[in-house]
Design a protein around this nucleic acid. Sequence first.
DNA 1: TTCTTGTCACCTAGGTGTTAATAT
DNA 2: ATATTAACACCTAGGTGACAAGAA
Lengths: 220, 220
Amino acid sequence: QVQLEMKPLWDEFHELGTEMIVTKAGRRMFPTFQVRLFAMDPMEEYILLMDFVPVDDKRYRYAFHTSNWVVAGKADPNSPPRIHVHPDSPAPGAHWMKQVVSFDKLKLTNHQLDDNGHIILNSMHRYQPRLHVIYNNPKGKDASLTENFKTFSFKETQFTAVTAYQNHRITQLKIASNLFAKGFRDCDPEECIAGNPSVTAGSNPGLSEAIAKHHQHRNL
Amino acid sequence: QVQLEMKPLWDEFHELGTEMIVTKAGRRMFPTFQVRLFAMDPMEEYILLMDFVPVDDKRYRYAFHTSNWVVAGKADPNSPPRIHVHPDSPAPGAHWMKQVVSFDKLKLTNHQLDDNGHIILNSMHRYQPRLHVIYNNPKGKDASLTENFKTFSFKETQFTAVTAYQNHRITQLKIASNLFAKGFRDCDPEECIAGNPSVTAGSNPGLSEAIAKHHQHRNL
DNA sequence: TTCTTGTCACCTAGGTGTTAATAT
DNA sequence: ATATTAACACCTAGGTGACAAGAA
């Protein structure tokens, strides 16, 4: 069992149409993909990894006058898909379950020839992040007889890859909820508590506190 | 087998009489204690930890007029000794051998009631850092019949704990060789290459380059 | 037009020795 | 006198969106 961390924040973005910046050098996701894991065998070893699959075979364009995404043709050709193995892998189930697992080292790029091991995506295309939990079986027990991995996919983490934000409300929600974008907030420094998403205040009571903790979940 | 990383730098400090700052909140060591490990069993699990033993039963004082440390009486009472377990522990031998092992999370404090898990030392006392490599034996094989740990001690890493530097030459060597003290260097920005210990330039050719790498060794 | 790139000011987070004030 | 503390300016390292310039 896997539970998506910061689901309320993901939901807010999802309702607006989540966008993720891709750059040549690689850009982290925000929100960061974080999960809680349950019911693993504490002693057995697992590998956790993520990949990104196209949601459809289309290319998109943002129509500013209607503030809507519209289909702009068939998808561009994909680069060979890449995976991101969580740096703690492999580790026993006890390790993965004892705290939130954060994929904050994962970076997205639009550079098709990237040699930093980042995830290569096409800008203006839609993607579905997936988590794979793989049972590590080094002793050579017969793996073919047992289901040795599980895949988890959260619809609210779908996003459109962009090189610059299209929907201004996405920009504002990022600024309001990402710690590193504080410099662009326009609220008074006094009433501007950490991570307070002023844009959507009231719609999600308790979300502000959750966002503040969001940035603390590192796997140390 | 264990090999001390950055031995030339440690030697420079040792010749002057190494001092390490201790603070209430905890201070990292500089140089950082880093080692290369060899001849471990790649598949077996080990725990690496450090502790600090008093070099003698004395308290010291720095005589500024002679620029020398002098005995200032018997040692103050010790707090119960603490250990610092390397955060990667436990890990298989292959993990420890594949790169330099850096104890850069270790912090020294003089706060006898510290509750952050830092190493508690007495200021103005001398200490010998020690590395313990422990063979992890979870399967309950008869540990009593096998030597299950080894201890390594490098004399050139001995130091005097201080709350403020006493020997001005130590201060200058720290400033010259510690990346985070660049703000206190007085050489021209142009000729001031990263990590160049101008104080001792010439006595150790190639040291500058080594110092530049010193800060990169993190266990990620 | 539409999309991409590189630079930038502004942040977070945390490691330095300095300095002045305070203990002891 | 000697030793300690706390605030501070100055760094490293790296994550933000804004913006102007460039490319398709």
